[in-house]
Amino acid sequence: MTGLRVRELRAGYGAARVLHGVELTVDEGEVAVLLGPNGAGKTTLLRALSGLVRARGTAGFDGVALLGRAPDEIARLGVSHVTQEDGTFGPLTVEENLRLGAMARRRPRHGVSEDVARVFTYFPVLQAHLGQPAGTLSGGEQRMLAIGRALMARPRLLLLDEPTRGLAPQAAVRLFRVLRSINRHERTTMIIVEHNVTAVELAHRAYRVESGRIGDLRRSGRW
């Protein structure tokens, strides 16, 4: 079965243990939503999957082990992580940010303009700002740039840490629609960390993270 299989994942910062044996399954093409209170370990889980935090246990993606690899290597395996801070490069232009997104691909220069055009179909506002430093965009626009840049990698697994954080309710709904459309058209598997419970509506699976452990919301019937 292709997709993501996380088993017994443990991670922490120095002596502080944050995740105590997380189990997570997301099949290919599915959207999984992770809910949970502040400090539960949601961000830490995504960072462990993208190699930013060291972790024990196993995480297999399409049969390839992710844990123990460097972030750039995991990115080149087709895993794109949009962090909670977005991480757009402020002094670089919107176009340069998008080009960077393509660096994780096997052929970074091939088909870049087609992919930029494809990103515009999802986030049309970016088009008007192409030559502008990313730091001059609004918070909402930077979020779209961060997600659009992740799409440039043609990811097979997209990790999104609170994509609607700080957005007006209307904008959040619109972004969820775009994410659903990306999932349908690109067949991109997604893990979305959210505080906004409406995210569950677009999810195939929903999990709840609490104090470093994870529960399957759908299966437990709590949702």
Partner: peptide, 15 residues
């Protein structure tokens, strides 16, 4: 330039 700005995010881009 991306690395100079934010090495962690640059690595996430596959740099």
């Amino acid at each position: 330039r991306a690395t100079a700005e934010d090495p962690e995010t640059a690595a996430l881009m596959g740099v």
